[in-house]
Amino acid sequence: MTFKLIINGKTLKGETTTEAVDAATAEKVLKQYANDNGIDGEWTYDDATKTFTVTE
């Protein structure tokens, strides 16, 4: 399955996707991606669209 991350950061905005077997696995990968890029904020997840959003 494809999961999307929408980034609403102070210095970085955009989106990325990852392939994962489930939402929990995708969340780990996407949170690591955000952490690697210095993004720390509030996370939400929409199961209907398989989209995570992080807002700083």
Rank of each mutant, 00 (worst) to 15 (best):
M1Y: 15
M1K: 11
M1W: 14
M1V: 12
M1F: 15
M1L: 13
M1T: 14
M1R: 09
M1I: 14
T2Y: 09
T2I: 15
T2S: 08
T2K: 11
T2G: 05
T2A: 07
T2H: 09
T2V: 13
F3P: 00
F3Y: 14
F3A: 01
K4C: 06
K4L: 09
K4T: 15
K4P: 01
K4R: 14
L5Y: 02
L5I: 04
L5Q: 01
L5W: 03
L5K: 00
L5F: 04
L5A: 02
L5G: 02
I6G: 02
I6A: 04
I6P: 00
I6K: 07
I6Y: 06
I6F: 07
I7H: 04
I7G: 02
I7Y: 12
N8D: 08
N8K: 12
N8L: 13
N8H: 10
G9Q: 06
G9V: 14
G9I: 14
G9W: 09
G9K: 06
G9L: 15
G9S: 11
G9R: 05
K10G: 08
K10M: 13
K10F: 14
K10V: 13
K10H: 12
K10W: 13
K10N: 11
T11Y: 14
T11W: 13
T11D: 10
T11H: 13
T11Q: 10
T11K: 11
T11G: 09
T11N: 13
T11I: 12
L12Q: 10
L12G: 10
L12E: 07
L12C: 14
K13H: 11
K13W: 10
K13Q: 12
K13D: 06
K13T: 10
K13R: 13
K13N: 10
K13C: 11
K13S: 10
K13I: 11
G14S: 13
G14A: 13
G14V: 15
G14E: 11
G14F: 15
G14Q: 12
G14T: 14
E15A: 08
E15F: 14
E15G: 09
E15C: 13
E15W: 14
T16D: 03
T16V: 15
T16W: 15
T16P: 03
T16I: 15
T16M: 14
T17Y: 15
T17D: 05
T17W: 14
T17G: 04
T17M: 10
T17S: 15
T17A: 08
T17L: 08
T17N: 07
T18W: 09
T18G: 03
T18H: 06
T18S: 04
T18R: 06
T18M: 10
T18K: 04
E19Y: 15
E19D: 10
E19H: 13
E19V: 15
A20M: 03
A20I: 03
A20S: 07
A20D: 03
A20P: 02
A20C: 07
V21W: 12
V21F: 14
V21T: 12
V21R: 11
V21Y: 12
V21L: 13
D22H: 04
D22I: 03
D22V: 03
D22M: 03
A23V: 13
A23C: 11
A23Y: 13
A23S: 10
A23M: 13
A23P: 08
A23G: 04
A24V: 12
A24S: 11
A24G: 09
A24N: 09
A24C: 12
A24R: 10
T25R: 08
T25A: 13
T25E: 12
T25F: 08
T25C: 07
T25H: 13
T25K: 07
T25Y: 07
T25N: 07
A26T: 01
A26D: 00
A26N: 00
E27S: 07
E27D: 04
E27L: 15
E27R: 10
E27Y: 15
E27I: 12
E27K: 09
K28T: 10
K28S: 09
K28H: 09
K28E: 08
K28V: 11
V29H: 08
V29Y: 13
V29C: 07
V29D: 06
V29G: 04
L30P: 00
L30I: 03
L30H: 03
L30N: 01
L30F: 15
K31L: 07
K31D: 02
K31I: 06
K31P: 00
Q32A: 14
Q32S: 08
Q32K: 13
Q32D: 07
Q32R: 13
Q32M: 10
Q32N: 08
Q32H: 06
Y33R: 04
Y33G: 02
Y33D: 02
Y33M: 05
Y33W: 15
Y33E: 02
Y33F: 12
A34K: 02
A34C: 13
A34F: 02
A34M: 06
A34Q: 02
A34I: 05
A34V: 06
A34P: 01
N35P: 01
N35V: 15
N35D: 12
N35R: 15
N35E: 14
N35W: 15
D36F: 08
D36G: 05
D36M: 11
N37E: 08
N37A: 13
N37F: 14
N37D: 03
N37R: 15
G38L: 06
G38H: 10
G38T: 04
G38I: 03
G38R: 06
G38N: 12
G38E: 06
G38D: 08
I39H: 04
I39E: 02
I39N: 02
I39A: 04
I39D: 01
I39R: 02
D40P: 05
D40K: 14
D40S: 14
D40H: 14
D40R: 14
G41W: 07
G41Q: 01
G41F: 03
G41D: 02
G41L: 03
G41Y: 02
G41I: 02
E42S: 11
W43T: 01
W43C: 02
W43R: 00
W43M: 04
W43N: 00
T44G: 06
T44M: 10
T44I: 09
T44R: 08
T44V: 09
T44D: 08
Y45Q: 01
Y45V: 01
Y45W: 04
Y45A: 01
Y45F: 07
Y45N: 00
Y45P: 00
Y45S: 01
D46W: 04
D46Y: 04
D46M: 04
D46I: 04
D46H: 06
D46S: 06
D46C: 08
D46V: 05
D46L: 04
D47N: 10
D47M: 09
D47I: 09
D47T: 08
A48C: 07
A48G: 10
A48V: 12
A48S: 10
A48E: 13
A48F: 11
A48T: 12
A48N: 12
A48H: 11
A48Q: 11
A48M: 11
T49L: 08
T49N: 08
T49V: 06
T49W: 04
T49M: 07
T49E: 06
K50L: 12
K50H: 13
K50Q: 11
K50A: 07
K50M: 09
K50P: 00
T51S: 05
T51V: 06
T51I: 06
T51K: 03
T51C: 06
T51Q: 04
T51G: 02
T51N: 03
T51W: 02
F52Q: 00
F52G: 00
F52C: 01
F52I: 01
F52D: 00
F52S: 00
F52N: 00
F52K: 00
F52P: 00
F52T: 00
F52E: 00
T53H: 06
T53Q: 06
T53V: 07
T53C: 06
T53M: 09
T53E: 05
V54D: 00
V54L: 11
V54H: 01
V54A: 03
V54P: 00
V54T: 03
V54Q: 01
V54C: 06
T55K: 06
T55L: 06
T55C: 06
T55Y: 10
T55P: 01
T55R: 06
E56H: 06
E56G: 05
E56W: 12
E56N: 05
E56S: 07
